[in-house]
Every structure is written in C-alpha cells, then in structure tokens.
Design a protein around this nucleic acid. Sequence first.
DNA 1: GCTCAAGTGAAATTCATTTTCATGAAGTGA
DNA 2: TCACTTCATGAAAATGAATTTCACTTGAGC
Lengths: 287, 287
Amino acid sequence: MDLFHALSDEGNRLSALETKLARFALENVDFVVNSSIVELAEKAGVSPPTVTRFCRRLGCQGYSDFKVQLAKLAYVGMRYLTPEAPTATAEEVAQDIVSKAQNALFELHRQLDLAAIEKAAQLLRGADFIQAFGASGNSAMIVNELHNRLFRLGCRMNASNDHNMNLMISASVQPGTVVFGSSFTGRDMGLVHCLELMRQRGIPIVVITQHGSPVAATADVVIGIDLPEGKNIFRPTSTRYAFLAAIDILANMVAYADRNTSLKALRSIKEELVRNRDGDDRQLLGD
Amino acid sequence: MDLFHALSDEGNRLSALETKLARFALENVDFVVNSSIVELAEKAGVSPPTVTRFCRRLGCQGYSDFKVQLAKLAYVGMRYLTPEAPTATAEEVAQDIVSKAQNALFELHRQLDLAAIEKAAQLLRGADFIQAFGASGNSAMIVNELHNRLFRLGCRMNASNDHNMNLMISASVQPGTVVFGSSFTGRDMGLVHCLELMRQRGIPIVVITQHGSPVAATADVVIGIDLPEGKNIFRPTSTRYAFLAAIDILANMVAYADRNTSLKALRSIKEELVRNRDGDDRQLLGD
DNA sequence: GCTCAAGTGAAATTCATTTTCATGAAGTGA
DNA sequence: TCACTTCATGAAAATGAATTTCACTTGAGC
C-alpha cells in the first residue's frame, strides 16, 4: 500500500470532499497525526464518517491506521511542502539539510527505474573498459565515486572530469568500451558532444541525468532523476544524495551481476589493506 | 520529545513491566503500530492501564500518540535492528541502500555536535588558507566535496588525497592556515602524522572522524561521527551520507559566518556560468 | 421528469482507551 | 517485628473516540 500515491490521487478515484481531505492532509501532516477524527473533520469541513470512508478508500484499515501510515511518511517525503525559510541557527540548518537529504533519497526511491539500473549494470559488467565523464563538481564527484565503487569489483575504469580530456578520450575510444555520463542538469553540452562522438563509434552509452534532457537523448540507457531544487543559494543541492544512492545501487547490481569476480577483487583489496594497516579486520575497505 | 531515547531508558526511570514494554516495542515496531492497546497488552503480558501509563511516562499524550511517534521513528532509525539479509533483487537492493542512507542521516542528526560545527565554521571562515587532507576513496570524496563547497564561498583552499604530497604540504605549511582532516575509521596513521606536524607548527586542526580515535586525538575541533558498519561487503558504506551531510551543514555555517563574502563569490560564479551556458538562470551552480 | 447511483452527515452503536480504585509488594523507620 | 508509606499493577467502570446505520441530497442517464 502506498499512501503517498493514494493521496496524490492520480487515478482520480477520490470524491470532491475526499480530494479536499487529501490536500488538507498533505498540507497539515503534523496536525492530522496529532488530531482525533472529529478535530480533523471539523478543521477540514467534513463529517467524521467522510473521514473514515476516506481512510478506507486510501487503503487503510481506519482512521488510526491512516494516522500511523501518514506518520511514517511524515518524517521523510513530506517536507517539500513546507516553505524554505532562510534559516540561520546551526540547529535549523542541520535539520533542514538532513531532512532535504532524506527527501531526496525518498524521492529517488520512488522514481528510480530499476529496469534501467539492471540494464546499466549488465552493460557495465560486460564492458572491457568503462569510461566515465562528469564535470563541474557535482557530477565529478558522482563519476569519481562510481570509479571508487567499480574498480573494487574488478572493473577496468577511468573517470574523467576535464572536457578537453574527454574530447580526446572520446575521439580515440576503442571497441568494447562502455561510456557512462553524469549530468545533474542534463544540459552539459560538452558532455553531449562527447557522448555523440561515442555514439558514432558504436559505443554503448549509459547516463544518469534528468529525463528528457539533451544528455538523456544521447543515451542507450537512461537512469533518470528529476528532483526539485531548493531556493537557498547557500545550500548545496540535496540532489547529490539521490545521485549518490543511485550510484550505490548501480554498483551493488554490478557486483551481483558477477559475484565471483567482485568477491575476488574485494577480498584482494581487503587482504592488502589489512596487511598494510594494523591487522584490524573490522575496518572499511577504504577510509 | 525524543521517543527513541526515552525507549532506551538511559535514566532507568521505567519500572520492570515498562522496561519489558519498551523492549517489546523496539523489537516489534510493526506489530505495535498496527495493534490496539489490548492486543499489545496481551502480547506483552501486561494490562492495558500499564500500557497507557507507559506511554505517558515516555512523554506521549496517550496510546495513539505513542503509536504515531513510534511510526515516525519506524521509517528511519529503527532499521538497524532488522538483520541484514543478503538481498539480491534490484528492488531489495534499492530499498536497503536508501533506508540505510536515511538511517545514517537520521543518526548523524542525532549525534552531531553543533557547537563543534560552529567552532569549525568560525575557524575555517577566519583562515587565510584551508588545507584539507583525506584519502582512500571515501575521505577523498569528502575533502574534495568540502573544497567544492568552500571555494564557492570565497575560501582559499586545497584538498589533497596523496599521503606523500600531504607530508610535504604539512612540512611547509604557513601561519594563517587551518587544516581539515577526514578519516572514516579514525586510524589513518599517515593522516595522524601530518596533523601532528601541523600541530607542532601551531596550525589549528579540525577533523571529521570517529570519536576517541587517533585522528580525533590530534585535533582542536572534532566533528565526531560514529556509525555502525553493515556486514554486506558488496555494499558501499552508508556512513558516506552522514559525512556528506556534516560537510553540507559545515559549509552552510561557513557561508553564514560571513554572508557578504559568500554571496559575492556565489554571485560571480553564477554570472559566469550563465554567460557561458544558455543563459538559463535556473540551473545549478555546477552540474 | 423519473430512476438510480454515488456522496454525505446525524444519530446510534460499537469499540478502544483511560480513569478510578483496590490490592499487593517493597521499602522505611520506630 | 510491626505499622506505615510509596509505588506498581490490574479489574472494573467510565469516558471518549471511531464506525455503522440510515436517511437525505445531488446529479447523471434514460
């Protein structure tokens, strides 16, 4: 059961008053989870029985169950609806950044096209060599992170963040390569150009970017991520968390696509790390 | 009100049966949020009034309120208690990675020492130059990310991921520098060595690492993050999300510590980006 | 203009939660 | 050892909240 989707009423299955209730609930999550059915009915301008029917129609057992389900949603996923204040204290900043990051993850989970992830994982696992492109800070972090994840699994890979370099790399690409591109905006035209060169050379293209963007248009497999951007110029984009999680999921699927190779590579890394450190075997594979 | 801590009963303020209830609730969150007070009482072997009193003692209004609070916790923060299964389908992997990342953020928010963040922000904002050290993939990403955040705010900064380089940099450091070190394990002895060189030269040291670790011991300001590590060797550590959020919060506080300088630098970046792209002004500051 | 289906709220009913009160256990001081 | 107090607990009563029933309204379709 998916309360969030039910409340959005995509199928238009709710009546007029029920739609009103849905909107009210989404805009007043905190009020609703702390109110009785009578209070909610009064505030929303309907009768208690209407509320009960509303809850049932959304797939809940009754009003209490609805509140519980709503509370589960409340911590993450609902915060986009509250306006962004120019917060100033460390506490507010921390609260805001953490909840926005959690939202981004929540939304990613909702949107993520798992079939695309699987196709991408198959392509990457099957590649003789993976060339990743991503520039301008955010995407640079993402492709470097992908490199950090995949070399451990025994993949041969390079991540490059420099457009001129990318151009030369694209022009000299060898068959058997798979290219991976990242762009948060989807409008990195330098990247588009490189990907087109790759395409002309018959290289399979995987991208992580916004749906329907120029970057997406060049690709064989699109891992699409569309998140709203906050207005606070001082705040790093929370979309990075979603991209990072997508990379983690992708890397995990690449690992599972050939467990033996992955395991062997990881074990070798661990052995060397333990040998070169203090012999403590609980530590991370990489600091 | 903090249900999680109340349930852990650190102050030993709960009676025998209430302790039993607390343990039962933590171990059966899903059952509890879907049961009536009578069902819970029966299953836990107490009477309904005891449950009501228990809820009140935890700071809730009553049983329904308790369920709602528990449900809020249930989505994040409680998942560590469920054993990690060697999941295999893309759906399971996605679910697991996203919820672990959300947990990490949740825990970070709980643990984060905001006073340390503020002190660190003041130090960094006041520095003539910031030198960041972090190696081995994860910490490398973190310090590169810090660089990506801070240069935009007009901070002069370098991030270095190479131990030999770090050694030379440390040996030749100039007064006015502030050094920032990142280590997930806190046992990066190469980093400890560099930080000690810095300390001998009177350079203020900020670190993000585990409490009580060798790296933490070298520092003036410790941003401590202690998270449990999962057992699945194929899965990237979720601790990265917590570190990343800490960096975002820190960067935001640095920005607020001198809004004018930050704003001027950010505006300049935006202008140049818009001029060099398609004139679309909605885009991110960096792809 | 009639019929039927769907939507809605008032009142009655049911059910869940809380309060009251009595009991017993554990500790305290004479 | 014996009152005495305090606290924890559950049975039963009382309260209060949620749901069902039923009657009324509205609007679409014939």
